[in-house]
């Protein structure tokens, strides 16, 4: 019994300690961010290319097919009520408010988050971060902050592109295959989707961008500097980001409703 209490105490203590360190780490990144954005924009642009531009293919392909599936499912359900023309609205609201930011964040964690974690973890394992320290270069500032900012900037842009290609996929399926009237498809969408819906999507994608990028650099920076440690950090990045994004999505949706 005493051992059980000690274990529980140890677990809680470790969780609080890690959470505190995580918050301090986030504050460190925020502290250096303005200087890097203004003083070294080239470093951030390179990371926007790495995390954003290189994720475009997966985001656009997935967006297109998610939009297509939503159109198929929406059409099948709405046809029961003779409301097929509303399929554009259903797809748009689902994509802009929910699926765009959430699926983009999950894909981002899988494509860019893992790349960030493993890159930083390997830099640590091969003494590259220690070498920077020895060259009087702060690795948090030089390596982590540009990668974090690159992810934060890329994520909302990727979510917007995901939603746009999703709408295009829905258009192709609904108008091209299911013969929904093209005017009704777009007009109903224009009348129903409001600016607050778009703002909700933008807000979510920004929050998810911060969370996914922060977790990726945190896990990489704190990886055990071995092959196994880096592998574990990469896996944890995906798992923790996925859970965090879904929980946060629920919380933000509750607030916006």
């Amino acid at each position: 019994m005493r051992e059980l209490i000690r274990d529980i105490y140890g677990t809680i203590f470790e969780f609080v300690r890690t959470f505190g360190a995580f918050q301090l780490f986030f504050l460190r990144l925020l502290r250096y961010s303005p200087k890097i954005l203004i003083g070294r924009p080239g470093l951030v642009i390179k990371q926007i290319y790495n995390t954003g531009a290189l994720s475009l293919v997966i985001i656009m392909v997935c967006g297109f097919f998610v939009g297509g599936v939503l159109a198929l499912q929406g059409y099948a359900s709405l046809a029961k009520f003779n409301a097929e023309d509303a399929v554009g609205t259903v797809v748009a609201l689902a994509l802009i408010k929910e699926l765009g930011p959430v699926i983009t964040a999950l894909l981002f964690a899988g494509r860019a988050g893992t790349a960030l974690s493993s890159e930083i973890g390997l830099m640590k394992a091969t003494d590259q971060l220690s070498a920077m320290e020895m060259m009087a270069v702060n690795p948090v500032r030089r390596v982590l902050v540009p990668r974090f900012l690159g992810g934060v900037v890329s994520m909302p842009l990727l979510a917007a592109i995901f939603s746009c290609t999703g709408l295009f996929g829905a258009h192709v399926v609904a108008v091209g295959l299911l013969e929904v009237d093209v005017g009704a498809f777009w007009q109903q969408m224009r009348l129903t989707v409001t600016m607050s819906d778009i703002n909700e999507g933008i807000f979510k994608s920004v929050v998810f961008g911060v969370v996914a990028s922060l977790l990726a650099v945190w896990e990489g920076y704190n990886a055990i500097p071995t092959a196994e440690g880096v592998g574990r950090a990469t896996t944890r990045t995906v798992v923790i980001t996925a859970i965090s994004v879904l929980i946060l999505d629920f919380m933000i949706t509750t607030v916006f409703l």
Binding site: Q128, A131, M132, M134, A136, N138
Partner: peptide
Amino acid sequence: DLASLYQLRQRFGMLFQNGALLT
């Protein structure tokens, strides 16, 4: 402090066991 440490480290050079080149 960190600033003074980095200032001092500018007077150091270190060759790591594996080179530690930025890949």
